[in-house]
Nucleic acid binder design. Structure first.
Lengths: 158, 158
DNA sequence: GTCATTTACTTGGCATGCCAAGTAGATGGA
DNA sequence: TCCATCTACTTGGCATGCCAAGTAAATGAC
């Protein structure tokens, strides 16, 4: 699923950086969290997160989207999406249709089966998220998360 | 590199969960952070994070480790490590040697080249981490991160 | 001592992803 | 109108990962 990575674990030969424990905790907890989310989504309807993302966006968009928009929405390269849709078509989750307005473009369409699976998955998954994130943190925690993430974001290049 | 995933972005059809913004901020910032770390490691010496992890652990362990221990240390499946080492041998970063104490076991050994690359990478990478994480957060932020991650950890199944 | 288990890897097969290159249709300017 | 460019995808090739199955060696129970 995902690894914490020792990219930094043993880097402090010289000075034991004071921020290292917090950084490692962040990586580790995030890894555990996302692993669980991945497993949860997979458990409910057999979807990978990538497939779930595609179906979620299609469903929210009314059932169909242009591939470019879709790739952009789920942060996936065009080639990655192309191959993902190939596999999802085999699974009967989506279909491709030519765009009547632009012959270069292709529309991805969610199937009845795909819609049923994603809606079921979404219901259960949301409940799971509530349980392992929402119920655990209080308002102060949430505010702190927002503040810290904002500071990190602001400090990041670009 | 990595995607935030819409796994939860659009899940709140009914109630807009109050924790959603914090959760999304956590995912997004973590994704940006790890993408940058990946790029940084790659830029310095051409290593992927997986390769860097292997070399780091080997170097710290004095140059050689049993494959099982190594796989465990970097949180990688045995088959994943086996294939990773195949590729790293081709690149001249590591070598395999039979374990004199147990014919089932294999030792991974870092090469001179591997050692040079990982040490150079480590120096630069640590400085980068200091810059985008250590310099940005103050002691209160770090304490908050630790507290929140601990709460989440405690609430996670298992 | 012998055989069922366990342990340690390797391989084959599949899922994901990315980049580079190729194909085809759409567009803008001369 | 015609061609250089763009835009939208698809393909081929490679890197990572995981699981299931296969091979070999070490261990443990009798």
């Amino acid at each position: 699923m995902s690894s914490v990575g020792a990219s930094v674990v043993d880097v402090n030969e010289d000075e034991s950086a004071r921020w290292m424990p917090a950084f490692l905790a962040l990586l580790r907890t995030h890894a555990r969290l996302t692993d669980l989310l991945e497993l949860d989504v997979r458990r409910i309807g057999g979807l990978s997160v990538a497939r779930f993302d595609v179906l979620t966006h299609l469903d929210m968009a009314g059932g169909r989207m242009g591939l470019s928009d879709l790739a952009n929405a789920i942060v996936l390269s065009p080639s990655g999406l192309s191959k993902l849709l190939d596999r999802m078509e085999v699974s009967g989750l989506v279909e491709r249709q030519p765009d009547p307005d632009d012959a270069r473009s292709t529309l991805a369409t969610i199937t009845r089966h795909g819609r049923a699976v994603v809606r079921k998955t979404r219901r259960h998954h949301h409940a799971f998220l509530q349980q392992i994130f929402g119920d655990v943190l209080d308002d102060r925690d949430l505010a702190d998360v927002m503040r810290i993430m904002a500071r990190l974001d602001a400090g990041l290049p670009h």
